[in-house]
Design a protein around this nucleic acid. Structure first.
Lengths: 157, 157
DNA sequence: TGATGTTATGTTATAATATAACATTTGTTT
DNA sequence: AAACAAATGTTATATTATAACATAACATCA
């Protein structure tokens, strides 16, 4: 199946970004954190914590949940990954956004997740919050549906 | 503490609505489903499945998870309640909306959840989806922050 | 340098959320 | 009443996530 983009470019950009940021902010990208980020970076599909666990484990050496969850917490805290609440899964952040408002398009057919930064939506969220005298701190926007590829081909990738 | 609205009105409206709908659609609001809905209807705070379990149990008769989860599934399916994915919790639907796009304002101080139906936001979601050739089926919009009351009083309700 | 504090990791156990699978009962239709 | 469908009961277990405490690695500066 033809892919609409070269994921290696995303990956190397994201890697560059995380390395830069860690240097700049003087936070430590330890081997475990690196490994967990690499797992999440593999594709544009969301990955679950226990799948990361599995992938990082060998018959001789089973990685334990706190190891992975702690790395995930670190990556989330610094915005290198996002949690998809409706899937209990994680996706790498490919935008270098300082903005705290982004939208996730989640294809329920193939599992692909696409991160969008739409200023109009951010703006409308702000307006709604103001209208309701609500101090918006953390917007979660997860849009489930079917992506173009799956609509077109009718197959799972 | 003064409350900004009379929750009993919400409750009775929602009760009326669910009864009407069940009659109209010829679906059964059994005692268990009624009970679970009542629990969720208690307040404008989200409630968790295991709290419902607790509330429905007596020392002599412990309700078991599938009982509650099945009722929740029924109520979700017919739009009488909503799941808040970022809290793993549930809230009654007080709008009689056929619309599939609503926004939840979630106060992280006091736990109050307010359901909004904002046409501009729905519209922008549609535009974004179209732009990305994405068939939107189920939008999830959960806005975390602090409500007016909590901002003002600095206390938890 | 090595004493000290801080950050990260290891380890064990368990909490919290959710579903599978199969048996039984209740309701509905004819 | 027979037969089917829908709902509930019951047991077990899967999945997701964290608490609590021990140890190791790193940082810093007297």
């Amino acid at each position: 199946m033809k892919n609409t983009h070269d994921h290696h470019i995303c990956q190397s950009k994201a890697l560059q970004h995380i390395n830069e940021q860690c240097r700049k902010k003087n936070i430590r990208l330890t081997p475990i954190r690196q490994q967990v980020f690499d797992e999440i970076l593999q594709s544009h599909k969301a990955i679950k914590a226990y799948d990361i666990l599995q992938n990082m484990s060998t018959p001789g050496e089973m990685v334990k949940p706190p190891t992975v969850y702690r790395a995930i917490d670190f990556l989330l805290e610094h915005g290198f990954i996002h949690k998809i609440e409706s899937l209990n899964a994680f996706i790498a952040c490919y935008h270098e956004h300082n903005k705290d408002c982004f939208q996730l398009l989640i294809c329920d057919e193939c599992g692909t997740v696409s991160e969008q930064i739409n200023n109009k939506i951010s703006h409308e969220m702000k307006l709604l919050s103001e209208k309701e005298n609500f101090t918006l701190q953390h917007p979660i926007i997860e849009l489930h549906g079917t992506c173009f590829q799956c609509n077109t081909t009718g197959t799972k990738s």
